[in-house]
Structures are given as structure tokens and as C-alpha cells.
Design a protein around this nucleic acid. Sequence first.
DNA 1: TAGCTGAGTTCACGTACAGAACCCACCTGG
DNA 2: CCAGGTGGGTTCTGTACGTGAACTCAGCTA
Lengths: 167, 167
Amino acid sequence: MPRTDYSNFACSVARSLEAMGQWWTPLILRDLYLGVDTFDELVADLGISRSLLTRRLTGLVEDGLIRRETYSDRGDRFRYRLEPAGHDLIPVLAALAAWGDRWRTPEGGPPLLFRHDGHECVPTVACSTCARPVTAETLAPVPGPGARAVRGTAVVASRPLRATEAG
Amino acid sequence: MPRTDYSNFACSVARSLEAMGQWWTPLILRDLYLGVDTFDELVADLGISRSLLTRRLTGLVEDGLIRRETYSDRGDRFRYRLEPAGHDLIPVLAALAAWGDRWRTPEGGPPLLFRHDGHECVPTVACSTCARPVTAETLAPVPGPGARAVRGTAVVASRPLRATEAG
DNA sequence: TAGCTGAGTTCACGTACAGAACCCACCTGG
DNA sequence: CCAGGTGGGTTCTGTACGTGAACTCAGCTA
């Protein structure tokens, strides 16, 4: 019995996790973003086992998050680069890192900081319309057009959501 | 050889994943946020095995992301509620869901939408200083005070980051 | 020609996950 | 008072997944 496949869940969190929710995958994407992009560099930086790294990289390529690129005309040397879908995941990982900095603060402070257009930047989740930060309290989930009574949104489709109350 | 423990990585993504990166955990937090908060409701909505749900819930309680609360004065009936750290993770999961809506659009459209202060809202990662959305290109990673030459930031501590270049 | 580097593959071992069955306390109906 | 239902688990049994070490192989390099 393999790990439950999320791809038929009517839940966009689940569908995202199907692409990047396995152990190591977010760290691999982070490293590619930072420029650690060859096989042996990834093994050295992460300490991931070589066999598992192979599986993760081929999976990410199949899923369209990254591509494998040949460098060094005269040999079979490869580097892995982010495709647009993988690129678009980086801000989410940055927001996740910010959560880690707040709630799991490492000794000595954050290992990595961000700048944006010349100023300091804490990646924060905000509203696309009014640009103000959103929190669990100010966000109100409502059923969307794809809500169905299957795993993942059974409850969304069938009963009033509780999250709009106090919390 | 258990799954590699991320908690000593000098990487805030890794430290976050140590708390919520296991299979099912983000979906459990999502469901608690939506009000699916008792053991049997979680089993019914997610289709997770009961034994694994037990482990996940006790792990989340130990990690301080949720708490177990008794309801119904006259019996051992429990519901699980988000603690502040878990609460603070919801916007990140919402941003992840928005990624899924963009790149893994389910049939029929998004199963869940968000409203914020009366208007439609796509949870977007933005800069805490200037409030503009950030992308992988506009975000520049720089070593922070906690950067060390261990798993996770070896490269950050020891060589120039590539991500500030073209991308 | 021996060694190094990059990029994997193979293998043995142990853990984690899935699914089903089982357990137990409390309540409810007859 | 006993059967059945509900909530909240635990136990059990396979299988898949992750780890780490050893091995392969091609193309340099000294």
C-alpha cells in the first residue's frame, strides 16, 4: 500500500502537496533556487541519499517543476533548473521559512534573510486585492466552483464552514 | 534508518517542515481550520488511517501546533484546535493552495476560495516592507546571522548565492 | 595507467504507511 | 438489562519508502 495519492482530492493544498509535499522535495527546490543545482552539490549540501535524490529529481522533472540541462559541451554533466511552476513556488517556500524563523527560531537567528528592491523583506501572505496581510482570522473560506463531495472537500461541499467564526 | 531529522538543519524551510512537512499534516491543519476537528470527522473527510491520524495528532500537540480540548462535559469527547503557531501557518497553506489552483487546476475550478474583508482574495506572498508581491526574481536571498556551514546552509555560508542573478 | 569527478545504480536493512480488525466507555432504545 | 450506536482510539499485517554504503561507468587529469 503506497502512500495515499492526493491527486484526486478536491483540495488545492493536497494537489500542491502531490507535486512538492514529499520529504526532501521543498529543500531540493530551495537549493536549486539558491544555485545549488548539480547532483553532487545537492548530495553534499543536503546529505540526502543518492538513490532518493535520483528519484526526487526525475519526479520533479516529470511533474514539470524543474528541467535537466546539460552543461559542459563535452560531457554528461547536468544541472537542474527551475521551470516556471517551480519558480512560482519559491515565494511560498520563503513564506514557510518566515514561519520557521518566527516559531522555530534557530540559534543565532535566521540563517537566510531576504531583500527586495533594496530593502529588507519578510515574505508575508497578503491579499491580492487590497495588499494587506491576511491571517487565519481575516480570511474567510468559501466553497468554490470545484467543491465536490469527495476526499478533501466533502465537508466544504456539505456543511457550513466553521472558520468564519471566531476561531 | 529513520527518515532524516531536519531539526538540526540551519535552514528555516527545513525547520518548518520538521513541524508540518509529513504526509497528511498540512491537510489535518487545513481541516482543523475549516472546522473538521474531531477524530472521526478527520478520518471521514480525509480517508486517513486511524492509526496514522493518532500519531499525527499527538505529534502536532507535542509540537505545539494544536491542542486537544474536551467538549461534552459528560464524556471523553475531544476536538483539536489550532494553537497560535498552527494558526499562523494557515496563510502559508492558503498561498500553497493558490499555487495548486494556478498549476494543478482541478476540474471544475478551485474547490475552495477565499474572501477577505468583503472582497475576493487570492493569497499572495508579498513583501512586509513595501507590500508588493514578491517573486523568485525580485527576492534576493542573503546570508543571515544564523548561517553556518552545516546541512542546509553550507552553501549559503561558504559561497556567493546564485539566485540574485538572472534566474 | 592510476586517480579524480560527476552522475548516477544496486543492495540490504529498517522504518513508515495503509487498511482492516479489534477494543472500550458511554449513551440510547426496547 | 442487553443490543446497538458513537467517539476515540489500539493492534496487527503486509508493502512501500528512505538510508547509507558500495558499486558502476564515462570522461578527464597528472
